[in-house]
Each structure stands twice: as C-alpha cells, then as structure tokens.
Amino acid sequence: MRSYSSLLSYIALGVLAVIASKTGILNAYVQIVLMFIGINVILSTSLNLVNGYMGEFSVGHAGFMAVGAYITSVLNVMLFTQSSLFGPPLLNPSSALFLFPVTLLIGGIGAALAGLLVAIPSFRTRGDYLAIITLAVNYIVKSSVENIQVIGGARGFMGMRNVINSMQDIINIPWALVWVIICVGATVWIIYRFVNSTYGKGIVAVRDDEIAAEIMSVNTQRMKMVAFMLSSGLAGIAGGLFAHVLGYINPGTFTIMKSTEVLVMVYLGGMGSLSGSVLSAILFTIILEAFRPLQVAKWVVVPLLLILLMLFRPEGIMGHRELTDIFPRLRRWFGAKEERG
C-alpha cells in the first residue's frame, strides 16, 4: 500500500481542488493561477530532463510548447467546434470529453518529433553550440507558425474556449483544471520513474562523461533521443494545456522570453532535482503573480529577486538533491520502496 500513498494523496488533493473550484471556494483567478502553476511544473520538470539530468543547455523549450499548443488547438477546434476557419465540427462536440486526451497526446507526439530537430544534431554537437541549435529551432517554429496563414499566422488562433465549454456542457466541472492536474501528475510520475531506472540513469552518465558512457555500453545516441523527445513531448502537452487555459494563442507567446522563464525555473530549482523543479515552478509562478501590480517594474523586480536568490543559493533551491534527501522521513510517503543505490 505504501507505494501508492503518494499517488493516492495526489489524487485526493486534485479532487479537492476540483470540488473547491466547482463550489466556488476557489475563485476563477485562483484557478487560473493553479493551472499556470501546473503548466509551469510540466515545463520545468521536462526541461530539467535535458538541462539538468543530461547537462545540455536547451534554450528553446517554448518552441516545442508552441508545436503542441498549435497541433492540439487546431485539432480540437476543427473536430469539436463551429469555427470560422474550419466550419462545422467534424465530430460530435460531446466526444471532446473522451478525445481531448487523445488530441493532447497527438500534440505531444508532434512536439516530440520536433524535438528530433535538436536530438539529431546533438549526436555531434554539445554545449553552447547545441544551445544555439535549440535557439534556432525556437525561432524556426515561431516563424513557421507566423507564416501559416490557415491557422491565423501572426494574428494568433482562438476557439479553444469552446472546446472546454463543450466538455463542460456534458459534465459541468472545470475540465481545464482537471486535465492540468492529471497531466502534472502523469509528468512527474513518468519523469520520476524514468530517471530512477537504470535505463534512465544513462542520461546522467551522458552528462558526467559521455565518452565513458558510450564505451561502457550506454547507447548515448538513443539516450539523447529519448531525453530530447520526452522533454519536448511533455513541453508540447504543456503547450496544449496552456492554449486551452488561455483560450487564445499567438506565435508571440512562444518566444525566447517564454523559454527564458522555463530556464529560470529549472536553474532556480536545481539542476537534476525533480522536486526542486516542482518547487521552483510553484514559487516562480506565485512570485510572478504577486508582483503583477507593479506592471512594467515587475520585470525589473523579479529578475533582481532571482539574482539575489542565486547569490544565496548558487546551486538552486535544491542543488542536486531531492526533497527526500533533505527530509528522509518523506521517503515513507514518496519514492515508495527505497531502492538500493
């Protein structure tokens, strides 16, 4: 039973959040913030896979997010809603309830394939040169979207609200929140299991010493493929959720600025610390919201705060450690059976 305690408590919390939203205890603003926290958790943990565990420096996470966001949104609007772009819905709008996770997954797969644009060069390129490639991919995705007029080009794309609405017409609960909660749980679960398997630890071996890894039986190319595709795929899912939470996306949303935010979350949390990424995503989202009244000055105060934070904790909040390393008693709840090693 113990091995499921963390899962059960997460589900309980999630159900509680949904009930509280439904009954109005959590107002719309708090719900939005919760959903942004969730999306940021997915983004930071998935980028940590590449930047933390594998030790590369990807600066184009928003590009993959955009791929997922657009694929999922276009599919959903086309399939389930009446829109000026695509006309009447191709499927019964009520089927959105079941097919939403499918389109979300397709968006994720699309983003994972875009991740190949980085994964394949990464076989030969490392470090800062690879960083440029990720940067270029971010720009390429953004300007590709800008040039596809069918999906709105630079003007953006909307209609995702209707998709959520058609789900809520069937069962009236805040579906966007539900899906964010599910996806966050799934992301953390997947990454946790992956990086704690001997297979997944191969990416840490690549970070520590790629040559030794390749010579000591780790298929480094495959590990890089897996890490990049998993990372970008999850970013794509985060993008799909993001699009449906906001109801409107445009290419300008997915610039280097967005990538920078994710980078900050990863390094603030600590490279290669899953719990650090979760914590810093929560902290960062709350900080951003708390300083919203400052308007323009927000982006002066927040970076200053972050610089100070890094001065005090030059390895991020958690460093390389996990919460369970600092509070061993948590192991009873998380991480289930403590594996030897």
């Binding site: 420096f57 390094y267 972050l306 890094m310 991020g316």
Partner: peptide, 11 residues
C-alpha cells in the same frame, strides 16, 4: 555552475 551565471546574465 557557469550556467547559473548565464541565467544571471539573462536576468
């Protein structure tokens, strides 16, 4: 780690 300095530079 030098990447923290890079992030500081971004900030």
């Amino acid at each position: 780690s030098r990447l923290y300095v890079v992030i500081t530079a971004l900030m």
